[in-house]
Nucleic acid binder design. Sequence first.
DNA 1: CAAACTTATAGTTTATTTGACTACAAGGTT
DNA 2: AACCTTGTAGTCAAATAAACTATAAGTTTG
Lengths: 239, 239
Amino acid sequence: MIKKFIDEESGKIVEKSVMNAITIDCVIFGFDNGSLEVLLIEHAEGISKGKWGLPGGWIKKEESIDNAAYRLLRELTGIKDLYLEQLRAFGEPSRFPLDRVITIGYYALIKKDMFNIKAGFTASDAKWYGLNEVENLIYDHNKILEYSLIRLRSKVKRAPIGFNLLPEKFTLLQLMQLYEEILGVQLDKPNFRRKILKMKLLVVLEEKQTNVSHRAAKLYMFDKERYEMLTNKGFIFEV
Amino acid sequence: MIKKFIDEESGKIVEKSVMNAITIDCVIFGFDNGSLEVLLIEHAEGISKGKWGLPGGWIKKEESIDNAAYRLLRELTGIKDLYLEQLRAFGEPSRFPLDRVITIGYYALIKKDMFNIKAGFTASDAKWYGLNEVENLIYDHNKILEYSLIRLRSKVKRAPIGFNLLPEKFTLLQLMQLYEEILGVQLDKPNFRRKILKMKLLVVLEEKQTNVSHRAAKLYMFDKERYEMLTNKGFIFEV
DNA sequence: CAAACTTATAGTTTATTTGACTACAAGGTT
DNA sequence: AACCTTGTAGTCAAATAAACTATAAGTTTG
């Protein structure tokens, strides 16, 4: 597709192609043992062969961008049940060395206990990294990761998306530690309990923890229906 | 550029082009006489000729997406001093009737008193619309507008971007009305004053309003340097 | 088996913030 | 001069958040 532009220096009308290569790159977050991790892959082909970066891929003509992101995650992890949100488009002309490639960043939150990584046919390896173990990634992937963290931190305070990182059943301490880890703050146990329970978003279960070397904590579940009901009434989640 | 994909039904590897046409569309907000407005343009060419939509255009190969958005706004309004932020990419395959076109949405906040609209060579007319005067726009532009409003509302509470819609010098009532209009709430004058002044972000000027038929209010200016200084110390703007 | 230890959970107290409201000041208009 | 509109200062009760104390319910250790 060729379109007309005004050349800013000469003022003349020039014709240029407006076709671009577009990729998707996704930051996948997991929570394990009290720390936040991201899933990185080692590229198996092309100029970035052998280097680590975010999982990603190309968008097909007939699918929406969101669907492309879902498809890529399905190919990589096999899970269908995850939280996925677009970050934004990253389009510095220099971000990709060979051609102009615009990428659309996503981030996903998954329950780590629920799946196995399949490296897939463009990756030779896939591995979880703690946030401060991440070193130099390909292209602008460090920048995308950084941006995803900012978004995650701001979103997690205003919407109950944190639950997507925990198992179905969790204790209040686990939930608190999740918030502590993501937000990088220290929280007070009794105060956190009170605050989160007052929202009435959690269902307390009969079950308790097992195999712990201390008093077993009650297990809770997030009540999504109740959340939506409350939201419609004007309730705003805020930690 | 041709890439390989796994066909999900047959499991075979197929080759597809990954080139896409990408545009930029921008929601431009202005504030006038107590109400929030958006700048729309009437398209002068192509299949949408005669219809109203968001101002937009194509991205050149050698410019970043942000720069493309700046360039388009400059071409349209002539202003260089504005607030600009990317929303996200919109890429439903059906959003554009002829081809697959992915668009990257932006929103801008401008001081309406500072500029004149130039319709430009792809638009036959440009006009400010109050938010509830906006009717059916081309493509998915209503959706982009809706999304921009959600973003504006959430952002304006957490960052002092609202000032970009006001003249350099403004009264506290003007500022309060801006927040009332954007957030759709009623605020209490004394309480709003106290809250906003406590942040120490405003410089009070010697000047007062003129030509008003009531007690003249003091004029204030936003102190950007002070804002950045406070932010570095951990201050968080919140209305 | 009891003491020590760890985490869970309940409750108290104080400081801070928010929200609603009252009162008066400072102009211009009639 | 009376009145109207908006600006500005101050008060007070209610709600919320933050810091802290205390106790309960288990495990582990000696």
